[in-house]
Nucleic acid binder design. Structure first.
Lengths: 243, 243
DNA sequence: CGGGGTTCCCAACAAAGGTTAAGGACACGG
DNA sequence: CCGTGTCCTTAACCTTTGTTGGGAACCCCG
């Protein structure tokens, strides 16, 4: 993996987040990043651990999830290339959830020590990374609304549209057909419903020719109806730092 | 309201969050805080606004919530004295949700300008405030799990125990009887259920002599059963910065 | 003290979602 | 190319939660 490509991925993400100065970009270039490959379906960091690095997703998909005592899992977020899903562990030392690869991934590990040195030296970058964790929190808020207030069809429509929007923001063309590598069981875990009901909902949206979700891919069939179901408003993603 | 009392409230909160140096405490004392009183049930900041201050809760209770197009409201968090519920607006300029007073409140408004100056001058304080927003996000994650995975009785038990724990952490004695000034309708909005169902669940827990929730107060009747229902594990609150 | 609003309470019925169980499609390795 | 495992699919039935509509309690204000 080309180092420059890794930086391009990171920069694209941070640039959508807020403007960068040349000195900041140079400092970012100094960051040591350890690139590692990860198999699909493996824990990257687990609940209870005290990681010493944060990880940048370079290729592939990850999810964050929490397991409760009764054995059920709740998926909290889906992560795509360019994101740093466990940046929060920089100041929250003990993990309170799991980070798991969904597909085979290329990951870039950045030590907390070097991140802390960077943020101490470059307040601009500190604020930008802080802001990134705040967007993370904003996405959790919307996820609460999704799971708490929308019926199952609306929940599914919403995560489909959120994922597509985020893929577009990070420069991945995601038109009417894009990757969403979750099994129906995992879709259920994301929406707070059982796999059987997830299947019902997927079937319904397919039969109504709104969206087709199969074999880890999404095909949007009726943009208007999908949008109406999801009530998706991308303001909570805070993509444009000037607004 | 005594200025020193306000600082005591803020310090108690930040101290549980991470250790403070004398120079940092001195810098905090320099922060200009505008104290204002708020009536119950009034918006403090609204979705879509661009606030210029963040607000410290000195007395009273607030909630954060989001309204969706179909008119339903989801409560995202409950806030108690010592917390800064909209600290995220420091770097996320446009509000993506509402902040509303539940009871009459005393609030301390701190301008973003002075907060930004403070965090630029004192990296320790910057990290502490950053960490505070990360705990906020951790609470949202648990809230997703609550709404997504637990049955209604468990959800109610969980927010009761979370609120009690947080009252204790900020130095408010909350034994078996404490204030939780939500109407049944608001409890429903927090749990993602209708007011009618909220009433059913409250009634059930009362009849089973587990917990009595009425007139804005909670009385814990059976600690063991309540804990079992809630599956409450306070790790996600990250109270002890050394762990 | 009286009246109007809010909050609480409840019942009957409807709908959404959970449970259990089982067969079929598909993918991969031996 | 056959077996094994994962994933998808469906049906029947059950439980939880939503809906509608009403009445009682309580509280504040005039």
């Amino acid at each position: 993996m080309d180092r420059e490509l890794v930086f391009a991925t990171l920069l694209r993400r941070l640039n959508t987040v807020s403007g960068l100065e040349d000195a900041d970009i140079a400092a970012l270039h100094e960051l040591p990043i350890a690139i590692r490959h990860w198999e699909a379906g493996r824990a990257i960091v687990s609940d209870g651990e005290r990681p010493t690095d944060s990880c940048l997703v370079i290729e592939g998909f990850c999810v964050r999830s929490k397991l409760i005592a009764s054995g059920q899992r709740q998926i909290l977020s889906i992560h795509i290339p360019g994101e740093i899903p466990d940046l929060q562990s920089l100041h929250l030392h003990r993990m309170d959830h799991d980070l798991i690869s969904l597909t085979a991934c290329t990951l870039g590990f950045i030590s907390h020590a070097s991140l802390r040195a960077l943020t101490r030296a470059k307040p601009n970058l500190a604020e930008m990374l802080w802001r990134d964790t705040l967007i993370d929190a904003a996405m959790f808020r919307e996820w609460i609304v999704n799971v708490g207030q929308r019926p199952a069809t609306g929940r599914l429509a919403h995560i489909v549209l959120e994922l597509r929007k985020r893929l577009e923001v990070t420069g991945r063309p995601a038109g009417d057909n894009f990757e969403m590598p979750l099994t129906q069981e995992q879709i259920g875990e994301a929406l707070g419903i059982t796999p059987v009901h997830a299947n019902r909902v997927i079937k319904q949206l397919r039969e109504e020719r709104i969206v087709d979700i199969s074999r880890g891919r999404v095909t949007v069939l009726d943009e208007a109806k999908l949008g109406e179901l999801a009530q998706f408003d991308d303001r909570y993603l805070h993509q444009n730092p000037s607004l």
